[in-house]
Design a binder for these strands. Structure first.
Lengths: 338, 338
DNA sequence: CTGAAAGCGCTAACAC
DNA sequence: GTGTTAGCGCTTTCAG
């Protein structure tokens, strides 16, 4: 028989595995002396329980899967850290998957994670159909969406109010005297793109400014697409003039700034720029980029709390929860008052 | 009997669990017709294997633990991403622990991860004694250290040559004409601190410049300590003058820069600064910080490769491997030529 | 108060 | 070719 197992120690003591198991789990109610004998033996063998066996028996792995498009982004890194922080005291650990922004990888990972019987799932999906998570949902495994929300009923999500994010950005530009405002939007098939655009549009219409479709460009969240979109805007500037641009992702913002610089234009003197998710360095001697920010720490904390709530409810189906946190404006040096 | 298990499906088909198991694992050699029947049944029930049970049986979880002081730092985020990238094709997944730079948390996590029977461990330890990993090593679970290397024999590690990092920084400053060079070092009880300091010292002595202990300050890698150390250097500047400072962590660099700014001094005109691990934004219109960098992607890739090698060796003890990658200088605008 | 027995879901050596 | 059996290491009812 294998050393280091309950059974082995039990046999050595002339006891049964159940008794030893009870002592290990603090559920022993019997003779104080036997308890001490067991404890000593455990100590002597430096017994360490096998969680895999325990998981099989209890059908619970105490593991939460976190599936993200890119863990190296500070935005996601911070969310992960906060989730971890929130759930670790309850014994849960995180298992991580990085999908590299590919739907196929996302699908593959979700399959694997399901097989591994994770207790819950946090998902920043890039597949708005939500197909790949259906197994989880069908089997009552709690799923919390962050960032993008797929088109599914009854799911829980914690994100920011993306429409409001668009409104805040445009309102700020308006308050600075801008009237001709361009924007660069991510994919509108995802809520992060569609809602930010909706906010942009509604802020304009609330202020009786007519929307000009030539000032709305689309990208794919990546740097190059921001560069390209900005070039198009600049090339068309005499036909469709603008004094400011709202760019809706971190990488696209960098791309747009580079395009402006490559034309030897100055920010903010020639064009004002407001970005998204920019983590300005703490070294504030330099020009800071004005940006819309998301409270990553609060998102992560909320996700953790919701997860714990779901995981503690032994009962029935989990109630759908949607929390939309407030995006906020972080003023920098890239928007000029007209 | 529980639905969705091998046994259940086997019984339904009038077959044994082993036969179904063989088909599931592609090890079936028998009758083509039975195979098809089984396949159909698996499909019909949308059978999904339980990896927990499989793990218990095979005593292997196909899981690699990654334990880090702070996952929200880009430095670690990038390393994690690369490790993941490297091992995911072989079916391994990463389980993540964030120790918040606390030895106690590190210890706790290592205990839990051991119970969970992870197949391997990647550890950026902050406990130079290495006590908490002894269980892993004693049980032949592959461990690869990154960043700091504890004082243990026979362990594998992949980091940069920290002494060389210090030398490169000082050599560069010397080549720019600086002769009075201060430094802010992290804890010397860790190799990342001690070795960088050693590099600093040796570069000076190689150039026949006498080391001045008043120009060497110590911090704890965090922002405030960098600020404080820089203040001390500045306060003492008439007694111990210097024209440049080498700061050995990202956060301490920001702290030092802030201290300089708070005294209304200019970088690089009044003081040249060379930092560490600074990830300058891609938006290069602004002042870039001159910094020593580590090749995080290469570190991650090497860790992944080494892990796979260890994990594929069924045999005996793993050979000790130490790889010291090259740190490099990333020139920016914070060092002035004298 | 303690133990025997069954079982979590799967695999694999060994039979037939 | 396929089934039987034993077991991975643990928990937990149910007896006694």
């Amino acid at each position: 028989m294998n050393k280091g197992t309950l059974k082995y120690i039990a046999k050595e003591l002339g006891l049964s595995a159940s008794t030893v198991s009870r002592v290990v789990n603090g559920k022993y109610e019997g003779n104080e002396k036997t308890k001490q004998r067991v404890l000593d033996a455990l100590e002597k063998h430096s017994y360490i329980p096998n969680e895999v066996a325990r998981s099989l028996q209890k059908s619970s792995t105490e593991t939460i899967a976190v599936v993200l498009p890119d863990i190296s982004e500070t935005f996601f890194g911070t969310i992960v850290k906060e989730i971890e922080n929130e759930v670790s005291d309850s014994g849960y650990m995180l298992i991580l998957a990085d999908t590299h922004e590919k739907a196929e990888k996302e699908r593959k990972y979700l399959d694997i994670l399901y097989k591994r019987r994770v207790d819950a799932l946090v998902l920043a999906t890039i597949d708005s159909s939500g197909d790949a998570v259906s197994k989880f949902i069908a089997n009552d495994i709690p799923v919390v969406f962050i960032d993008n929300i797929p088109k599914l009923d009854g799911i829980s999500a914690i994100t920011i109010d993306n429409k409001k994010a668009g409104q805040i950005a445009v309102d700020y530009l308006l308050s600075c005297g801008h009237r001709q405002i361009a924007t660069i939007i991510g994919s509108t098939s995802e809520t992060t793109g569609a809602d930010r655009l909706a906010g942009y549009c509604s802020a304009l219409s609330d202020n009786n400014i007519e929307k000009n479709d030539s000032l709305i460009k689309f990208g794919d969240y990546k740097l190059d697409s921001g560069y390209k979109a900005m070039c198009e805007l600049l090339d068309n500037r005499n036909k469709a003039p603008f004094t400011a641009v709202f760019v809706t992702s971190e990488q696209m913002t960098y791309g747009a700034l580079r395009a402006i610089r490559d034309r030897s234009l100055n920010v903010p003197d020639d064009i004002s720029v407001i970005g998204f998710d920019i983590h300005n360095l703490k070294d504030d001697r330099r020009q800071m980029i004005t940006t819309i920010r998301q409270p990553e720490d609060v998102i992560g904390k909320n996700v953790g709390e919701l997860l714990l709530k779901y995981l503690s409810e032994n009962d029935t189906a989990k109630e759908e929860t949607r929390i939309f946190l407030e995006p906020f404006l972080q003023k920098g040096d890239t928007v000029k008052k007209l």
